[in-house]
Design a binder for these strands. Structure first.
Lengths: 348, 348
DNA sequence: AGTTCTGCTGCAAACGTTTGTAGTCGCATG
DNA sequence: CATGCGACTACAAACGTTTGCAGCAGAACT
């Protein structure tokens, strides 16, 4: 029923190959002929069949995008940016959701492999070995984790964690808890490493609580542990957990930030909606989505490149972090941290 | 490079057609032969090329999902449910985002048309006529709006609006504002109609403010108008606007719900995170996603069916709605409704 | 014994494109 | 006048499947 290239050829009195070239190689066909063809195509409402084209060219003009959980507010901006960016380059995007399950992750990559020109693997929970294996099936770009030999885009979350810890120390906190994220998360390891280091350098103590699922619930569930740990400040793996923690503290009558300061990571839409508004590390999720698409389209088939894009993060100071018990002197609560560079502009 | 059906045929010593049937019509091939074939396929890591299959069968096993704004918390649960449901039926989902723009909507449907077996059009802003036209290009299921002659799944948001208004009236509110949603939204018209009717029946006055973009910002922007209107309660087009409004009221020192009650619609994840927690109308978004997929897969090619699935909504009473100036007697603010059935709760 | 049936498998055409190769034509070149 | 070239177009093979049809055993009827 739908018009094919043959219908167009018939209608414009030329051969199908000419029609094809009229679309994909305009310089090879007489301008006049081309005009005829295009008119006929328009007339018939012809749209090339991408499946047929894919069959012969080997490129589907589709890309896969695999995330851990669409409902996690971290991902929608990334998905949105990637989709829109890809569409601008005439690519369509398959979105799939793994429910934070490494097994589903693998299955999805395999299922999508023959259907797409490449896959954007966001925050994978698989092992590097598994990922490398999969990259033999289909070009992969990994987001939020560097994998040796594969193109990846990561956020400098270590920098963010450092800034967060320094911010808390500057406010007078000496005992800080880190609400760890999920096992298998590179980001989690980075945060932990950087936060530990930053704390040590600043003469503060860092207690690690976790690993935990990156959800609001598990943030709430850790409230007891936080209180038991006797800390005056908490850095959470992400905003979701920070929000859950604040809620649970609130229920127990613990005031944030008066009694405990809480800092999140990601600067999701959520962070502006909590009371108090959340101090958090902003990660450039939309930029990451676009960068990942670019890398995929650019590298095309030469997998096993070692390209790594690192995006900067910054600390956004709001109301959930305040003076700690060891406050000596210095800036007021909402004031900018002393720091160099990135930290000093908290955009809002 | 990747194994084709021909490789499998060669490896297992049968004809390609037998291999094909071993996968798609098991009853037509000898069990033993089939086992051989499957073993060989497994060995070679063979996965059928969906593009080639689509070419001949005419079914791509893909479906398109078009939403107004992925970042709007209303949509992720719907997308997630649809994707997972579709995958269970061996379908993959293209997700695209229109940025609330009717023009982009049309373009997207057309772009996806040849690539999918059908499109789920969520909360379209186009005219019915346009939608009907597009349905000639590709099977369509409309979500959140009934379109004559097309399969659709809608939420009984009128019911929800009625319950919300009745709830407010029962609490003693007589002047209620409705924060209208976007122009072109069927849901918006429904809410308005039902709320107006419910208010009239209950002897209350309803002021309509709008239309507005369905965003937090425009909710905040209407705070002044709400105060000027002198109402004691507000029903918002969605949670996002309700949240924005609450924020803005808070900034002005207006207490919710003590001075003004606010009720949202959608029961997004947001609503449990606001202070006070939002009273809202729960819409079954995940169920809608699944239902839409089912309808699409079921109707297959017979477009122009008139099937309409209506999903029930219910009122979730939390803390943002409280007693109004005309309180006489009745249930306490946080009291549970008399349960059994969604509708009965605010009958009094 | 011949016939029909059943269960399985092979053959080959099709699906809608792209693309290498070969042809045609007119025209300038030598 | 032959030759070659440039600009264009037609031909046909290929991509990896599915599927109607035919073929061929052997079993089960008549």
């Amino acid at each position: 029923m739908p018009a094919t290239i043959r219908d167009v050829a018939k209608a414009s009195g030329v051969h199908v190959s000419t029609v094809s070239r009229a679309f994909s190689a305009p310089q090879l066909v007489n301008a006049e002929t081309r005009a005829h063809v295009l008119a006929a195509a328009e007339e018939l409402g012809y749209r090339p069949n991408r499946a047929a084209r894919a069959l012969i060219t080997g490129r589907t003009h589709n890309i896969g995008l695999i995330v851990a959980d669409i409902a996690n507010p971290f991902f929608p901006p990334l998905i949105k940016a990637a989709e829109s960016h890809a569409r601008g380059r005439d690519y369509h995007v398959f979105v799939a959701d793994t429910n934070e399950d490494a097994g589903v992750e693998e299955e999805l990559v395999l299922a999508l492999a023959k259907q797409v020109d490449g896959v954007l693997l966001c925050s994978p929970r698989m092992s590097n070995t598994q990922i490398e294996q999969l990259s033999r099936e289909v070009p992969l770009v990994v987001v939020n984790r560097p994998v040796p030999g594969l193109p990846a885009v990561v956020m400098d979350v270590a920098q963010g964690a450092r800034l967060a810890v320094e911010h808390l120390v500057a406010l007078g906190h000496r005992e800080i808890a880190l609400l760890g994220g999920p096992r298998g998360s590179w980001t989690n390891r980075e945060i932990r490493r950087a936060a530990t280091l930053a704390a040590r350098n600043a003469g503060a103590e860092l207690v690690v609580l976790g690993p935990n699922a990156p959800t609001e619930e598990s943030g709430s569930a850790q409230a007891e542990a936080v209180l038991r740990a006797g800390v005056s400040a908490v850095l959470a793996y992400n905003d979701l957990m920070a929000v859950g923690l604040i809620d649970a503290l609130d229920h127990r009558g613990v005031k944030v930030p008066d009694q405990i300061s809480v800092v999140g990571i990601d600067d999701t839409a959520l962070s502006r909606r909590t009371r108090p508004m959340l101090t958090t590390v902003a990660t450039p999720t939309a930029a990451a989505g676009r960068a990942a698409v670019d890398m995929l389209l650019q590298h095309g088939d030469d997998r096993r490149t070692t390209a790594l894009v690192t995006l900067q993060t910054e600390l956004v100071i709001r109301d959930s972090s305040g003076p700690g018990p060891h406050r000596t002197a210095g800036p007021g609560r909402r004031q900018q941290p002393p720091v160099d560079g990135v930290a000093s502009e908290s955009r809002e």
